[in-house]
Amino acid sequence: MIIDILSWILLLGGGLLGIIGGIGMHWFPDVYSRQHAAGTTDTLCAMLILLGLALQAGFSLVTFKLALIFIFLLFTNPTASHALANAAMQGGLRPQLERTAGGDNP
């Protein structure tokens, strides 16, 4: 029962973070801040959902596979964000450091 509640808290928390990340993607003004929204929230969002699913599954082979996906995401997600930001930097895209007067950022 307690495990069930805990897993649902984790699942809902993960889902909430996913939605926040999606909003951030549209809200932020340039590539790098959007990366921040997508990268950081996505990593934690996937982690929380996987943890929640692992608690739902109990201790079995499924849990082990979920743990493997967990490790895989733990390494690939931040690396992908890093590679993307790096590619944008090398491609000559400068971060937008100040609020532009007539920009579309709220």
Binding site: F75, T76, T79, H82, A83, N86, Q90
Partner: peptide, 17 residues
């Protein structure tokens, strides 16, 4: 492209997996 250290280390870790 000269790739960064992070990318090379993570790739070396992931490819065997």
């Amino acid at each position: 492209n000269e790739h960064s250290l992070i990318l090379r280390v993570v790739a070396k870790f992931l490819i065997p997996l």
